[in-house]
């Protein structure tokens, strides 16, 4: 059985730190024996006590230190304990790390990744459950990635650092305990492959044929596959799921051919409504494929609300599989 996502991340960090003596890892409560709030960093500080540092509660300061390391020719990965707290580092991300790549009139490498445990469904309440991806969409010089069970994290993190651009890596907290997929097999019905080394394509029978394309960030990948399975078995709808590792800049070139063939696109994400990643993707698809689409792009997201703590209330706000299922069915069959 394939490793868990949290193990894959942990092994990726072990490998990257072993390979690159310039790499630092900074964050709150990272050090052993605690090993991070979600245990992603377990074992790292014991092997590299000089480069894996538990820090004070200073998200802005930590990302600033990481920016300084990058400026001095080093590389840095920062763990934000809950992605909600990345708001405290917004200035360093918006005004220092991302701008420094260009505002001095020449390309300045800023190899820096901010890891953000993200999302709800764990009952942590309004300030520990958000999906803040949308607040970082469209910042010049900043890349956004999301962990998925289809993308090896050593490749993703290594690739992010190699760009020389700062990036945020969103990590769905429920996904941590799930398992990675391997060898192109999802289950007895679905297969997957990677387009351009970035977009995971999950299909049934024929990768070139589908009634609808469903694009989701990695945190919704398992949920999207479950929805695609139900659509096939209950409604006889063939839904192809696409999961880009890089959310921003949009990887439109890898997404458009499948959308053009199906003529229908649903984008689902856990962000609350308004100013979302999906809205940007919909705009790109409408612009590129306006004459080809059989229906407007449909967005599915969480409600316009704070995220409540109690499980029965949290379900009323966060995007549910039934919401995605209904959206695909309506787009295919007509509402």
């Amino acid at each position: 059985m394939a490793e868990r996502v949290v193990e894959n991340l942990n092994q990726a960090l072990h490998a990257l730190l072993a390979d690159d003596p310039r790499l630092y890892l900074l964050g709150e409560d990272l050090a052993d024996p605690y090993g991070g709030a979600f245990k992603v960093t377990r074992g790292l500080s014991s092997r590299w006590p000089d480069r894996v540092l538990s820090t004070p509660l200073s998200e802005g300061g930590i990302v600033g230190v990481a920016g300084g390391l990058a400026l001095a020719g080093q590389r840095a990965i920062v763990e934000i304990m809950f992605s909600d707290f990345v708001a405290l580092a917004f200035d360093q991300i918006l005004n220092f790390a991302s701008k420094s790549t260009a505002m001095y009139g020449r390309r300045v490498p800023m190899p820096l990744v901010v890891r953000c445990p993200t999302g709800g469904n764990r009952g942590y309440g309004p300030t520990h459950s958000q999906s803040p991806q949308k607040h970082f969409v469209g910042i010049p010089g900043l890349d956004l990635y999301e962990v998925s069970p289809f993308h090896d994290n050593q490749t993703v993190l290594g690739g992010m650092l190699a760009t020389g651009r700062p990036g945020l890596l969103f990590e769905d907290k429920v996904l941590y305990t799930g398992r990675m997929y391997a060898d192109g097999v999802v289950d007895e019905l679905f297969r997957y492959d990677l387009l351009d080394g970035d977009v995971a394509r999950i299909w049934v029978d024929d990768p070139e044929q589908s009634d609808c394309v469903l694009v989701v960030p990695g945190g919704l990948a398992v949920r999207a596959v479950a929805v695609a399975r139900e659509l096939l078995l209950r409604d006889d709808i063939v839904c192809q799921v696409l999961v880009p590792s890089r959310l921003w800049p949009l990887h439109a070139a890898a997404l458009l051919p499948a959308v053009a063939r199906a003529g229908r696109l649903v984008v689902a994400e856990e962000s609350t409504t308004g100013g979302t990643w999906g809205a940007e993707l919909a705009h790109a698809v409408h612009t590129a494929l306006w004459g080809t689409l059989r229906a407007p792009v449909r967005l599915v997201h969480s409600a316009d609300s704070v995220i409540p703590t109690a499980a029965h209330l949290e379900r009323t706000v966060l995007v549910q599989n039934t919401d995605i299922h209904r959206a695909v069915k309506e787009v295919v069959r007509g509402a």
């Binding site: 990302v63 920016g67 300084g68 390391l69 080093q74």
Partner: peptide
């Protein structure tokens, strides 16, 4: 850079190196 105070943690990172 033009944002007040922002450089202090950045300089701490440089000093760490």
């Amino acid at each position: 850079t033009g944002v007040q105070g922002e450089s202090v943690p950045v300089a701490a990172g440089v000093a760490l190196h």
